[in-house]
Design a protein around this nucleic acid. Structure first.
Lengths: 135, 135
DNA sequence: TATATTTGTAACATATTTTATTACAGTATG
DNA sequence: CATACTGTAATAAAATATGTTACAAATATA
């Protein structure tokens, strides 16, 4: 899951923020995203591993936020779901006998690294609460 | 082609910048990228459509830069190959009857739009010449 | 305690997207 | 006129993303 991971996770977290006192079921959440509940549970597993949510098994179980939405920033969500941003790499290893092939990935890395810093700075300025308040 | 398009295009352009007086064949370029020559020609077709390179058919044909590498910025290359950056969307249309589902994509759009502005500003400051000089 | 409901997770299936290959007509060079 | 390219279409293969089914384990509550 690459393209949808961040979007799905932030969608889940927004719902949890809107209902901070309820354990929401994966089925309910899936209904809002229009996604298979199993995939929702998979993203929730990731959120649990990062101690962002807690969930309760069994009847009337579900998931709820375990952190203060004003303290969690989009940067952290980004890092939990995307690792890093960039404009990609050629799939195959470039020719190491060519001066350009030899250094292209290194130079792209440097470029993307700077890009990440800028994007991170932006995302760090937005809390989950801020984002949720837009709805 | 999503992940590799920018990387491949900038690799091609770097080679062309390094050999500004030669028509380089797709086979030669493919050898540096380690990519099928047909895919190189496809990216070159895109560059041609944007008047960045010119190419010559027939024997001893190939491609050469048609612009001044100090005038072309990475922003333009980005726009020719990537359109826009972002952290993706859930694949299916979210539930329009849910307040969150109804506005999630719109709010993501706004977030990604700001992200693009930051990335564009960064890329605008780097010319193809600058990039090529790193090799 | 029995039933219903929900998570957690694995295994498998399908769809979509990327990348690669083959083929060949058209064009310029020498 | 033989050779070496581009341009492009059609097809194939590989990789990745998404969806489905199944079921054990957990827990509320009747």
């Amino acid at each position: 899951m690459i393209s949808g991971k961040f979007a799905i996770t932030i969608h889940i977290l927004t719902l949890l923020t809107k209902f901070p006192n309820d354990f929401l079921s994966s089925e309910f959440i899936a209904g809002s995203i229009n996604l298979n509940p199993v995939l929702v549970r998979k993203e929730i597993a990731n959120l649990k591993a990062n101690h962002i949510v807690e969930s309760k098994e069994g009847k009337n179980g579900g998931t709820k936020l375990a952190v203060d939405s004003s303290k969690l920033t989009l940067k952290e969500i980004f890092e939990m779901t995307f690792e890093t941003i960039g404009l990609g790499y050629a799939k195959n290893q470039p020719n190491p006998d060519c001066p350009v092939g030899k250094k292209i990935n290194q130079n792209l890395d440097a470029l993307y690294s700077e890009m990440n810093q800028k994007v991170s700075a932006q995302l760090e300025g937005i809390s989950l609460e801020d984002f949720s308040n837009q709805f």
